[in-house]
């Protein structure tokens, strides 16, 4: 992770869409690698809202509690055990694996075609395939904030590459033996996908 990025709301997309994109980017960043100290600090800076005010409030609070307790060395170990492991991690965070039971399957081929249509490609030096959970979260964030795709088209992408497996992935992550900090990330993912699913289905 390099450089510093400023997230700004409301400069070109509607505030609700900006919030959606932010959360996808946040999930993507947390799932791409273990958070460093600055990332943990950023999590603590999120305004979780008033208690009982919204379904996401307790989720943000749990994430902040986990960030407060977290230690970067232990986080690196937790991330390794969950997603990398010796041979393989406790979880296999790819759409192909969840949908087909194997890596590099049909859904990845379809996703690559879709990304090409959208004018997106993998950065140089990235060895992870595009159906990695973090890459898909990042893609959805970019689609919302930059593509100009309608909500209906966003919904199509969501249904084809996210809704059909990522909820199960977050459920597995929440239940994973090695998960501690990432249990709170899983809760955020589960709740957010549920809201996204309802929101996007309203557009259909």
């Amino acid at each position: 992770m390099t450089g510093q990025v400023t997230l700004s709301i409301g400069s070109g997309v509607e505030a609700g869409d900006a919030a959606r994109a932010e959360i996808y980017v946040l999930l993507g960043t947390l799932l791409a690698g273990p958070p460093d100290a600055a990332m943990l600090e950023m999590l603590l800076d999120i305004d979780a809202g008033e208690p009982d005010a919204a379904p996401m409030t307790p989720i943000w609070q749990s994430l902040q509690a986990a960030a407060r307790e977290a230690d970067t060395e232990r986080l690196a170990e937790e991330y390794f055990n969950l997603f990398i492991g010796l041979g393989r991690g406790e979880l296999v965070p790819y759409a192909s694996f969840y949908i087909h039971g194997f890596l590099m399957e049909k859904v990845l081929a379809a996703l690559r075609n879709e990304l090409q249509r959208l004018g997106l490609e993998l950065q140089e030096g990235i060895s992870e395939p595009e159906d990695h959970v973090a890459a898909l979260c990042e893609t959805m964030g970019m689609i919302i904030s930059e593509s100009g795709l309608s909500l209906e088209e966003q919904s199509e992408f969501f249904k084809a590459y996210i809704a059909n497996w990522m909820g199960e992935f977050f459920a597995d992550l929440r239940a994973a033996e090695s998960a501690d900090f990432y249990r709170a990330v899983a809760q955020l993912g589960q709740q957010f996908l549920e809201i996204e699913s309802q929101y996007l289905s309203m557009q259909a």
Binding site: V5, T6, E22, T29, L118
Partner: peptide, 30 residues
């Protein structure tokens, strides 16, 4: 909100964008 991470960890806009729905390389969004 500050992120000490590169937002685009995986993807970039292709050099030659294809299709009407291609992403803009730089856009005035969030």
């Amino acid at each position: 909100t500050r992120f000490t991470a590169d937002r685009r960890l995986f993807l970039k806009s292709a050099a030659v964008a294809g299709g009407a729905a291609a992403l803009t390389a730089v856009s005035a969004t969030t």
